[in-house]
């Protein structure tokens, strides 16, 4: 997570670096620390830094970390030759390192020679089966090739062992959603909610999934999760507000004739009025459009 003050510091340093005012080393270390992805800037200035012998010697023990960082940034920018140079430098310093091995695998990946990359990763894994990065790279490779079933299989196998890796659950949820396997995706979202019960985005994702699945029970649950998203985000999440309105309409339609229990319409109308208010504040030209759409939903919800 990037805090506001760190973000400002990053912007300032980035501007300074872009204008050639120095501070490249500080910028690179801040980028590493915040784990942000500014590949083109890192690659450009990092390479310049690494090409000067005097700057290299000044880096001290950080030199190799910078090499790794610049190599990855270069691969991001498809500057494969420069990346190779960095990797070679690292390889001559640490010949047996797994970390360098991963970089090599990533280089083949960037080049598009999947077989070679696959070979590198499987070698790494046979040496150390608990290397999570190599596992993940393999899955990412399958995804990059568009081979979703292999990616799903790989992720499932990975999660069998590393089942507390919630980024992997998130990825699996996304893939299942893209494959329209909503039930499975729902399971993943439940796991995500368990891991961080106060993260509004997981509640929102689960709600949207349930809404997409449809059916009166799912819709009711979806509305509850939209409501909890509103609660957790303090009503600032627009998608959740829209979701509540849509759920209200959909539940009413799905209920159809068998009107057994009275649904509370309070939430729907409140959400609608908050939406209109927000639009009036932020984008007043669209407020009329929004309110007409919402009126339609409201009618559907009440009818």
């Amino acid at each position: 997570m990037v805090g506001a003050s760190e973000e400002r510091e990053l912007e300032r340093l980035e501007k300074q670096v872009e204008e050639g005012g120095g501070g490249v080393v500080e910028y690179l270390s801040l980028v590493r620390k915040l784990k942000v992805r500014r590949s083109n800037i890192v690659a450009k200035h990092g390479l310049q830094l690494l090409n000067q012998a005097s700057a290299r010697s000044k880096l001290g023990s950080d030199l190799w970390t910078v090499y790794e960082q610049v190599a990855i940034a270069c691969m991001d920018c498809h500057a494969l030759d420069s990346a190779k140079k960095c990797i070679n430098a690292l390889d001559s310093k640490f010949p047996d390192s797994m970390r360098v091995g991963r970089l090599e695998g990533m280089w083949y990946e960037a080049k598009g020679s999947w077989q070679k990359a696959e070979k590198v990763y499987s070698n790494l894994l046979s040496e150390n089966p608990s290397d999570t990065v190599a596992h993940k790279r393999r899955i990412a490779m399958a995804k990059a090739q568009g081979n979703m079933t292999v990616a799903v299989e790989g992720l499932n196998k990975y999660l069998e062992t590393f089942m507390a890796d919630y980024d992997a659950w998130r990825e699996l949820a996304d893939i299942y959603t893209s494959l329209q396997m909503y039930k499975q995706a729902g399971f993943c979202f439940e796991e995500l909610i368990l891991s961080q019960p106060t993260n509004a985005l997981y509640h929102l994702g689960y709600a949207e999934l349930l809404y997409t699945m449809g059916g009166i029970d799912n819709l009711r649950t979806a509305r509850k999760y939209y409501a909890s998203t509103i609660e957790l985000s303090g009503g600032k999440n627009m998608r959740a507000l829209y979701g509540v309105c849509l759920c209200g309409a959909a539940i009413n339609q799905a209920r159809g004739r068998g009107r057994t229990e009275e649904e509370s319409q309070e939430l729907v109308s409140l959400a609608a009025s908050v939406l209109v208010k927000k639009y009036k504040e932020k984008a007043s030209s669209k407020a009329g459009l929004v309110s007409s759409i919402l009126d339609k939903y409201k009618q559907l919800a009440v009818a």
């Binding site: 649950t221 509850k224 409501a227 009503g235 509370s264 309070e266 208010k277």
Partner: peptide
């Protein structure tokens, strides 16, 4: 806990309004 969240959401929204 979700069934109660609707009421809580309502109060959040009322507060916003």
């Amino acid at each position: 806990v979700l069934p109660k969240s609707e009421q809580r959401a309502e109060s959040v929204l009322r507060h916003l309004l």
